[in-house]
Design a binder for these strands. Structure first.
Lengths: 74, 74
DNA sequence: ACCCTATGTTAATAATATTTAACATTATGT
DNA sequence: ACATAATGTTAAATATTATTAACATAGGGT
């Protein structure tokens, strides 16, 4: 398993709560590809801040209810 | 003036409120360069979500009190 | 068993974020 | 006036994120 980024998210859960939205549908709303959504859900990399905000807008939740930073806080 | 990203921030203000922290000092805490901090403050580009969270941690504020998305919410 | 949809996964490429170095401006202190 | 610290700004290089296409698996419906 490849290394994960230190930010978790519950996009997958939110998709199901929102009328079982598919990765494809979410990707289309964002103007991204479904592979990018899959990669974000699997924490392969940290999305840009802008993409994170747009995801939060789609689900009508504050950003930090969807993404949570799990890194050390030095 | 070059185009700006659709996310505003009040990092500059927060630096001053936090003991007049300089761009250089903030950059060092984050492991970034001062030019990167300058560029973020001037909205030249959107920082990564991870950097945004680490900035929020440094100032002990929720992320969305520092960064606000100003794009259309489709 | 067969089709169809949703998702996982990988590799190569494109786009964007970040670094580095260099030089500029502005304000402050002596 | 001179020196110094903080910041602005640019260009070129590197690192990371996002796209695309291709192929894989798992589950549901018929």
């Amino acid at each position: 398993m490849a290394k994960q980024i230190p930010i978790s998210n519950n996009i997958k859960t939110l998709r199901f709560l929102n009328d079982e939205m598919t990765q494809q549908e979410l990707a289309e709303k964002l103007g991204l590809t479904r592979q990018t959504i899959a990669a974000i859900e699997q924490r392969k990399y940290s999305p840009s801040l802008e993409i994170a905000f747009r995801i939060a807008n789609i689900f009508k939740k504050p950003l930090d209810e969807i993404f949570v930073y799990e890194g050390r806080d030095d």
